[in-house]
Nucleic acid binder design. Structure first.
Lengths: 237, 237
DNA sequence: CTTGCAGTGTGTGTTAACACACATACGACA
DNA sequence: TGTCGTATGTGTGTTAACACACACTGCAAG
């Protein structure tokens, strides 16, 4: 594993990797590596955010939790993005939560420094806004998918979005956790996952899911996945 | 009706109204009034956008239409916002459509001029980004609501969001149109609307819906409505 | 005045997902 | 080696929303 590919290297984050040398040079002294475990909460609903996090090899879910305890995922972030868009969008906090879905590393930067660099209006500014637009598309498509598609297809979408952000074919994730993300019941996930396993698309066993036929998943998924993927590609994030 | 309240006045748009005198002075010569009719399409999925539109007294829905023709609304915009966030977010286009839900007026500005002013980084920049963050919350909450709440509650949410953006208690809107927004069937809307009418919250007749008990609607709606409203209030948009 | 149609009401059968209950089975740890 | 908790499988009954069909009604155009 070379230096660039090492997960602690900030350039494993695709936004940081795209920065011009000058801007990266200005930021890099202020980037601090952090490690996240499964289930860590990066920010709470309405909670103060001190840092922006550029993910390098972890995955974070943006979740909204209802008053009655039910929850649903609105977006998923990997090394293509950041956690803490509210810091540069100007709202400071968000009404959702950010929770670590796959353990790994990130680099963080103090909110104030982020805002100062953002104000300079360089490529950093453009990259963050383009990423945010892509995230908006992902959230939008989640809304549409939640309305119009079956749990099984949504599970496919979720698996593919997660797989895109992983370096391996194995997800450490129970049916119960997926149910919280999808805003559905554990049994519903068990049934849907069982069908995907019977179809030879995935294997799972006690909290470990292995993607064994990605092409098959892409055939089983609804169009929502490709819409989001195309938009991320188009925006180069 | 005084000059300020006249819908052709750009200051009927709450973003423009908040601009400092200097910035507003720079923009106002380039603001051009436009009128929209019900059903007008401001932009198509992936379509080029020439102007940003500051809505003054119309309402616009952001809709995504599936390959099979089904559609679902991801957000709703009135005089608190703009149509065309992709122009300053940097993506130029969006994969959804913007369609006029309530006829009225807006003022528009050429994309290039918008981008130039946005780059200056003044209050205009801050306002547009704060508004975009509020819109993200609205889209997020639509995703959650689509997953977890009944059609009847979602109809309440939709009516309240629309009512907030109207100057009257009457919506010109058939059950069929609402069904397209909510991503559900016309019959489902008829049943849900019938219950709300029986409960004395609304009246409707052949494409005209009248809100007659707003407080009652606010009791019947799910928490999603208030989450979005609170976030718009917090962000002063 | 009558014809057509847009807007709405409603009924029947079907399906997807829910709630709840409980069975099974492995792995970790004593 | 036994025990317990986590993860998963599955069955039953219920509900919300779907698909489809068709009836009703009043306005508007001829």
């Amino acid at each position: 594993m070379n230096a660039l590919a090492h997960p602690q290297n900030p350039c494993c984050n695709r936004l940081l990797a795209r920065l011009p040398v000058e801007e990266y040079g200005r930021l890099s002294p202020h980037l601090e590596p952090v490690r996240f475990d499964l289930g860590d909460i990066i920010y709470q609903s309405g909670g103060h955010i001190d840092y922006i996090y550029f993910l390098t090899d972890c995955i974070v879910s943006l979740l909204y939790t209802m008053e009655n305890g039910m929850s649903a995922e609105i977006g998923i972030v990997g090394n293509e993005g950041v956690i803490g868009i509210a810091l540069f969008m100007g709202g400071d906090t968000m009404p959702n939560r950010a929770i670590v879905q796959s353990a790994g590393t990130a680099v963080r930067m103090k909110a104030r420094l982020l805002q100062d660099e953002f104000k300079r209006g360089g490529e950093f500014h453009h990259l963050l806004l383009r990423y945010t637009q892509a995230l908006v598309t992902q959230i939008s498509q989640t809304a549409v998918c939640n309305r119009l598609h079956s749990v099984e297809r949504q599970l496919c979408r979720w698996l593919l979005l997660s797989h895109d952000r992983l370096q391996t074919d194995e997800l450490i994730m129970t049916h119960d956790m997926i149910a919280n993300m999808l805003g559905t019941r554990r049994e519903g996930v068990t049934v849907a996952a069982g069908k995907l396993q019977d179809a030879g698309l995935i294997n799972y066993y006690r909290g470990r899911i292995t993607i064994i036929n990605r092409a098959g998943l892409e055939e089983a998924v609804c169009e929502c996945y490709q819409v989001v993927k195309d938009e991320f590609d188009r925006l180069h994030v």
